[in-house]
Write a protein that binds this DNA or RNA. Structure first.
Lengths: 188, 188
DNA sequence: CGTTTGATGACAGTCACTGACATCGCTCGG
DNA sequence: CCGAGCGATGTCAGTGACTGTCATCAAACG
């Protein structure tokens, strides 16, 4: 049992999720997470900025996926269409780990601090989308709006997907929600 | 200097904002806020759940305004129109304290934890909007989407309003943003 | 004037998070 | 094969947010 077991970061993330599920986020101390991972509290904070961040490390991957999808959308695509493409790409990533996503979400739903962190991560994704749209030559105002609204749609679709036991695909909910968006904004 | 100076809550809020502006949020301790208000740290936490909440106490007022505005919108108004009415009503509240709003926002913009709190307050406003729409008989899906998107538009408009020195009205930015939303979602 | 009630003070305790320094295991040039 | 260097970890002390508990004080009430 050397000091150097592999994948300390991953062990911490798994230990944290397990404990958050078993006993709840605020009944879990960082010392306990570290202990289960065979490490010390100090080392936890070398891998994750804080006790919440351990649940959100994957968010940077989503950022890459969104940025690449927007950049790769056909030139002819309107801003909102590029956003739609990106959201479906992100959906693909989440669908690969459906069970993990559901478990993680149930932990987040049970704790306000975690919800706050989730929201700022989503806001950061919105910023990524906006930047990627600007790269396509979309004016800043339209880019910002399309990104903000796109993330709003994603939140809405993701919620519906997570809340249902059926295994209807997330991308389906996203298409439905985009259609709903057009319906709701059209009539006036 | 009796123990019973009036408006302890208000004194704490003012002291907190002053200190957050002077020295920044994380360089300010709760003990310092309490001292400036002539109270103790323990008493601060009796009035505000945490160090951040002192900047967001007014959010419940916005909730009332939004709910009432949606309820009071003409029966003929489509969901998104009712949302528009509500957003302008909220804008009115903020415009009464433009200077306070700008100062407060500069503090929030300088600190991530405060941004997180702001986002969850906005999400809560979105929930309020959705509930109010449901009360009007709007189906839950449309209500949720309209609310979510409405708040996205509000965030966008508010940001533009705060960032400009000119005293163009917030409600103007909201109307512009709603128009932008329709433009961005229309072509497809 | 005594009692009650609600707000405050005082104090100890937990835990998230940080800085500083020691230690360990691996790698690489010799 | 060996020692230097380096990156990851351990150890420890400290700060500050937040909580529970009990004492205390000012005002309202009978």
């Amino acid at each position: 049992m050397g000091r150097w077991q592999p994948d300390a970061r991953g062990r911490l993330a798994r230990a944290a999720l397990e404990l958050y599920v078993e006993r709840g986020f605020d009944r879990t101390s960082v010392a306990e997470i570290a202990e289960r991972a065979g490490l010390t509290e100090r080392t936890f904070f070398r891998h994750y900025a804080d006790k919440r961040e351990v649940l959100f490390a994957g968010s940077s991957e989503l950022q890459d996926v969104l940025a690449r999808a927007v950049a790769g959308a056909p030139e002819s695509a309107a801003p909102m269409d590029a956003v739609a493409v990106a959201l479906e790409a992100a959906a693909g990533v989440l669908e690969e780990r459906q069970e993990h996503a559901r478990q993680r979400q149930s932990v987040i739903d049970a704790n306000t601090e975690l919800q706050e962190r989730e929201l700022i991560k989503l806001a950061s994704l919105s910023g990524t989308l906006a930047d990627a749209l600007c790269e396509r030559g979309v004016d800043e105002a339209s880019a910002g709006l399309a990104a903000e609204v796109g993330i709003a749609v994603f939140k809405f679709a993701f919620r519906r997907w997570v809340d249902r036991a059926e295994d209807k695909e997330l991308s389906l909910f996203i298409r439905e929600s985009l259609a709903g968006l057009r319906a709701v904004t059209a009539d006036a």
